[in-house]
Amino acid sequence: MSYACAITEDQRDCYQELTNVAMGRAAERLAKLLDTFVRLPVPRVSMIENSDIRMAIQEVGQDSSVSAVCQGFAGSGVVGETLLIFKDTSFANLADMMHYSGPLSRQAELELLMDTASILIGTCIRGIGEQLEIDFNQSHPVILGQHCQTADILRSGNSTWNSTLAIEIHYQLENANVECDLLLLFTEESVNILNKKIDYLLD
């Protein structure tokens, strides 16, 4: 398979390490908010084609009902999209941890989703930007779906992402049934700019 742009193994490794640092910062903020411990995975960095995004997302919430938010970011010519996908079974636990009282309405779940998204997405994007000396601006988050199958997420959203570089982080809380996936997708044009910055770090 050929791509218009590509990353070398050294570059892939560097993206992974920058993500490692950024996701650690996000986990710290979430852990403090929820008074819990976030189990951190090794992030997955890969080049994928547009059609593969669908597969990547479907892997995330296999056979389970999910809710998802997306949020764009841009800076120094680098443009991307983040996608946060929560397993719906997470919300009852999240509500407990955030000391929500009363019945868990759709609206309350939405608030939980948005609160968590702003921490996980915002901190991660800023963390990566900071290490690459890029000041990212973020657009408003958009709900892609509540209580739906992952296949529906792309159908409902503007699935015109032409991204090639994908970074996937699977967050899991210890001793609590809370699980989500954060996907960072960069446009093809961005990868060349990012690679230059990465090469500078690798020098």
């Binding site: 490692n20 650690g24 910062r25 986990a27 710290e28 852990a31």
Partner: peptide, 22 residues
């Protein structure tokens, strides 16, 4: 890069001498 207070506490409890943030 895992700068959660709990991660720091766990490694020190497990005998690590110090923790340096990435």
């Amino acid at each position: 890069g895992d700068i959660q207070p709990e991660a720091r506490k766990r490694v020190l409890d497990l005998g690590a001498l110090a923790f340096i943030e990435k």
